[in-house]
Design a protein around this nucleic acid. Structure first.
Lengths: 167, 167
DNA sequence: TATTGTTATACTCTATAACTATA
DNA sequence: TATAGTTATAGAGTATAACAATA
């Protein structure tokens, strides 16, 4: 293109740090995961909630929201969606009729298994360039950073956003 | 916590893969970077555009959008913002008056340097738990995945979204 | 009076498509 | 007729705050 003089000619200093790489790869990974989920009719957030529901077994929406760092009002819409898909059902608690416990249906468990299959293919795609030892090394380094940064295993920090979850 | 029986008692199988870790850490890293940028009055997208503008030196908005994978209409708003902050200026091309070349101002270059300082602190924060050798190892593994996945160095795939960039 | 879940509102941010001015 | 940039519109998604039912 055009103008003769540049402000600087250094290409990219610093040469792209770990933080940027993480952010860049994280966005990429999340996008790829969402893509693989789409044929199943699922969104990334569904995946995270399915896992959390199975883990807690029948948590109230409030408990779920607290665990996942989501506002209760946000959960309402997603649980509505998932109930519409037949993945979960709300059961009002016999002891406190205000509270609705969220339970997996058979379809929900099936979805969870389908997600796991998709997930394996997705991992394979992401790690395509690395050997077994390197993958283990990478997983270990990432896991240490995650722990150091106070991220809880399996809880995505951006479950509030659109393309947040990455299986 | 309540109901007696669970659907499964496996905690989290698979134990959380690399894809999820990347997505999780990526979202975390992007959020931390945005936080550090805020005191400077900057958004993550500004950072990416500043870098791209310096790199290309006076690119047209179209060239910029193409390089960054952004819609022209999205660029308009951001360049407006940045021009309002005095970081860049539009110069209409002498040969084609439709085309506006985007140039860094002195304030823009200063901002770029401020971002680099902030960036170093941010890298330090993210990698706090790792030694030098481990950081190099991690950077190498991440870089290889990024290359394998066709991500261009310094170009964030989600520059279209809110908290996208991660320095 | 406090709490669970829901609904309503306002806000942010995006893509699509019309529009203008040049070419 | 095509292209660079802009504006306008509509759509997706979120947090905040009001609300109803229950405790």
């Amino acid at each position: 293109m055009a103008r003769p003089r540049a402000t600087t000619d250094r290409p990219l200093d610093p040469p792209v740090g770990i933080g940027f790489l993480l952010s860049q790869l994280g966005a990429h990974a999340a996008a790829r995961f969402a893509e693989r989920l789409k044929p199943l009719g699922l969104k990334p957030a569904h995946s995270g909630i399915l896992r959390a529901v199975r883990l807690a077994d029948g948590p109230s929406q409030q408990a779920l929201g607290e665990r996942l760092g989501m506002f209760p009002s946000r959960l309402v819409g997603i649980i509505d969606e998932m109930e519409g898909l037949g993945l979960v059902e709300r059961r009002s608690s016999p002891t406190d009729r205000r509270s609705h416990a969220v339970h997996l249906t058979a379809a929900g468990e099936a979805a969870l298994e389908a997600i796991q299959r998709v997930s394996r293919a997705y991992q394979e795609e992401i790690c395509a360039g690395l050997g077994e030892a390197e993958r283990a090394q990478l997983a270990s380094l990432l896991g240490r950073i995650a722990a150091e940064q106070g991220l809880r295993p399996g809880v995505h920090p951006a479950l509030g956003q659109p393309g947040a979850e990455g299986g």
